[in-house]
């Protein structure tokens, strides 16, 4: 218990240490209530294997936070903690607190379906349902029991517009989503997530299966989306993390090595391993 407060202090200290660097930042939240997601002393196990070790981290609303690190470092596991997608893995066990919107999400009281509506997710490989484009976006509403056709139509249209897919598909919404290109499919998956009005969007290497042009489109999208949503993105691509994120956290072998402003992490990392990784010396 002592340890917890120590680490918390450490993080607080780091926040204050960050202050001189962020000269152009005007608003600087300090209270826990102003953070969207807080994890405290988080340990994650798969059976005997410990995938995450004592993670303490806070994520700001209306920003893009990038999780980086070499394969198997625990960044994807960490991402999936926020919408409890790890629950289906055998032997998965978690200790510590994960707080989203001031609610501990690993308690009995949490309704997991509601959590996942609030915390949406976009996956590594585009995974549209083998249904029409329209039905893909409408799916989230339908499972909530929404029957109002007018509302669904509007929601589908606005969601597709948000991801700039509307003009490309508006004439064939009845077409099977699997007929779209990879980049279009991924934007469709983002639209599908937006349609249920989440607060947080988790993205697990969303562009790793896409060509550079499609990647560019999705990165552009992130700039627009962060005005309305809190975005956490896992990426393998250093340039991408540098381009799109406001904050960056570096994971290595289940430890959170370093986190902070992206500009700071990429220009003067305080940890040697972070520096080695972002300069491409390993990973």
């Amino acid at each position: 218990m002592n340890y917890r407060s120590e680490t918390q202090e450490l993080i607080m200290k780091k926040d204050t240490m960050d202050t001189p660097v962020e000269t152009n930042e005007t608003k600087k939240p300090k209270k826990d209530q102003e953070y969207k997601i807080i994890t405290r002393n988080l340990d994650v196990f798969y059976g005997e294997f410990q995938a995450l070790k004592n993670i303490n981290m806070k994520i700001l609303p209306y920003s893009v936070t990038a999780l980086i690190g070499p394969s198997g470092c625990g960044k994807s596991t960490y991402l999936r903690v926020f919408n409890r997608m790890n629950d289906y893995i055998d032997d998965f066990r978690i200790e510590g607190d994960v707080i989203v919107d001031r609610k501990n999400i690993y308690t009995e009281k949490i309704e997991i379906e509601q959590l996942r509506k609030d915390v949406g997710m976009v996956f590594q490989k585009p995974n549209p349902f083998p249904k029409t484009i329209f039905e893909n976006v409408a799916y989230g509403l339908r499972i909530q029991g929404v029957k109002d056709k007018h509302f669904i139509n509007e929601k589908v249209e606005s969601s597709l517009k948000q991801v700039t897919l509307w003009d490309e598909v508006k004439d064939n919404l009845k077409k099977n989503a699997l007929a779209l290109s990879g980049g279009q499919q991924q934007r469709l998956c983002i639209a599908r997530t937006l349609a249920v009005e989440p607060e947080v969007i988790l993205m697990d290497e969303p562009t790793s299966a896409l060509d550079p042009i499609s990647t560019g489109k999705i990165e552009e999208l992130l700039f627009d989306l962060k005005n309305e949503y809190t975005i956490v993105i896992v990426t393998h691509n250093m340039q991408q993390a540098a381009r799109v994120s406001d904050h960056t956290a570096f994971f290595y072998m289940g430890d959170l090595i370093e986190e902070g402003k992206t500009t700071q992490i990429f220009t003067k990392p305080s940890n040697k391993r972070t520096e080695n990784y972002i300069t491409g010396r390993f990973g």
Partner: peptide, 19 residues
Amino acid sequence: SLKDASFALGATKWQTIYL
């Protein structure tokens, strides 16, 4: 991946299986 997508949108287990 299909199941993941459905769960991530807040579908229950049975909704995911059925739909």
